[in-house]
């Protein structure tokens, strides 16, 4: 980090010298997974509320609001579970990242349009309780933080305690020679 001038050389030998990085990815996985699973679990049992929360954003046509209302909690839970156990890590993190981008757009646009809604992130029908004010700023901060977790995992999908490495997915040992997501990790040898 100190010598920027020789940065290229330094980063060239980094792979062998950063055993902590896979643990960072593991931590990012757990954080993103926990939020996704909790958010999905709080919504999936009452899909009518979930649909209503989507409608509250006044962004999607009715048919899409239905699909998102029912589908989103399932996608959140599946992506969360996959991240938790480290299975198809990169794809799951990619899905999580796309969701976060969508949430940031949704909340940002609700804020910009002056809507007064609850984000419905963790259940509810999107209406604020009496006397409650919108909390857009912190909702955005949270989702951008989670987006950063997702981005990190996509870039560095190899992590400790993951089924991907246990099952030999994701090419930690040998790269998959078709179009697997190995990202040239094989040029180590």
């Amino acid at each position: 980090m100190v010598q920027l001038a020789s940065g290229a050389q330094v980063s060239g030998r980094l792979p062998s010298a950063k055993p902590a990085l896979p643990w960072v990815t593991t931590a990012a996985r757990v954080v993103l997974a926990a939020v996704l699973i909790v958010a999905g679990a709080l919504k999936i049992g009452a899909p009518a509320l979930s649909v209503q929360a989507v409608r509250a954003y006044q962004l999607l046509p009715e048919s899409l609001a239905q699909v998102v209302g029912y589908g989103l909690p399932v996608v959140e839970i599946i992506a969360g579970l996959l991240l938790l156990v480290g299975l198809f890590t990169r794809v799951a993190a990619g899905v999580g990242g796309v969701l976060m981008v969508a949430f940031v757009i949704g909340i940002g646009s609700a804020w910009a349009r002056g809507l007064r809604i609850d984000c419905g992130c963790f259940g509810g029908d999107g209406t604020l309780a009496a006397g409650q004010d919108p909390n857009y700023f912190w909702e955005l901060v949270r989702d951008i933080g989670l987006l950063a977790c997702a981005a990190w995992i996509v870039v560095k999908p190899v992590s400790r305690l993951s089924l991907d490495s246990a099952l030999g997915f994701g090419g930690t040992r040998e790269p998959v020679d078709e179009d697997g997501p190995d990202e040239g990790r094989d040029d180590r040898d």
Partner: peptide, 13 residues
Amino acid sequence: VAAAFVVWSVRQG
């Protein structure tokens, strides 16, 4: 698993 979640959720609604 995903399909099972969807089916259950649709029943709930």
